[in-house]
Design a protein around this nucleic acid. Sequence first.
DNA 1: TGGGGTTAT
DNA 2: ATAACCC
Length: 463
Amino acid sequence: MTKPERHHSAAETSPATLHPRTSVAVHDELEPAGSSSCRVIVHVDLDCFYAQVEMISNPELKDKPLGVQQKYLVVTCNYEARKLGVKKLMSVRDAKEKCPQLVLVNGEDLTRYREMSYKVTELLEEFSPVVERLGFDENFVDLTEMVEKRLEQLQSDELSALTVSGHVYNNQPVNPRDTLHVRLLVGSQIAAEMREAMYQQLGLTGCAGVASNKLLAKLVSGVFKPNQQTVLLPESSQDLIHSLNHIKEMPGIGYKTSKRLEALGISSVRDLQTFSSKILEKELGISVAQRIQKLSFGEDDSPVTPSGPPQSFSEEDSFKKCSSEVEAKTKIEELLASLLNRVCQDGRKPYTVRLTLRQYSSGKQCNRESRQCPVPPHVIQKLAAGNYDVMTPMVDILMKLFRNMVNVKMPFHLTLLSVCFCNLKSLNTAKKGTIDYYLTPSLSTTSHAGKRSFKMKDCHMED
DNA sequence: TGGGGTTAT
DNA sequence: ATAACCC
């Protein structure tokens, strides 16, 4: 998260901005184009994503309370169900008790969710290529350049007539002469266009938050909930971060860190702001300490990092008990079969395979172990040629990894198996400008070999 | 607690 | 290979 910023330096790195802004520069017009010190970031967050996808697949579900089930959990539900008391990650038992009319669909196969998720990311990439995915249902987009371009096109009379789209956090008045306000307003208009495009083209609704960095954009996107958007003006950023009831709600401060902070007597955002930096650095290490203390002031200079195609593909299955090698082998074969389909569609080849498992333990540990190894070159070749049997050699490798973790001569009790392909590379390493590059259809006719989309409408490969 | 993902160490 | 984070 500390990669150098390529486009813009962050305003919030200035020590003066550790405190709420009382005045705002009004003379940004004097700055050379492109040197803006304030970014415009949007966070787009789909409403109950899996449930929306299910309602699109089966419109009869639309006006019913709907939950998406994985094993014994309702992982998400639509707003009809929420009105009746169903919450995310509620057990199926509790949910049915609260809401006997609840309709449940199984959501353990993520294929359709994943596909729709990438359609959303691709749609957003058409606005600006700098899109970072967070899970399947959230995206960050850096709108800074787009906003600058729109402002350059505007006449001065149009500039003073700009209006906000959606809510302004805290109902803060907009100052049309404040260039930061104006940029964020243009950001709010782009956000509205994004949400409209998502609805018109994909049938999906969602929220958006517009602010000067990722942390604030994410926090503000959830202020008005479903299918609404909110922009945060800089003067209200302290109000927004202090609206959090606990530091655990701060994105970037997870379970472990919040427990350690609590042991130090830190529970509110203000506690973290005012805590001794020196002691915090001793306790958590300089990197985490400095990062989260900046977060507590609403400062986040991490760039929107384009996600691009996925770094890994994995499939997992959890269960009450698996205690024999043949049983494990069968489950591994299932996971592998699905994965090979995905890897095949992607076009890139995995150079590493990993097996992960969770062993039963009465203690409440999230006890996962993994072993990984290279995918043998002859298997990669078969993958490239297609259609040869690649299952058999891969299952053999995975079972070796399995026996490396599990002594099969002793009793064992597994509750999860997962197979992951990573270290993905385009098989063809031809570089641009070389003969190989132009002789390779996958490189010379698409932007990136196998890059998830089948946007083939513009290219005609008469094979 | 599910079925995914990412980056840092 | 694990541990932390995110959804």
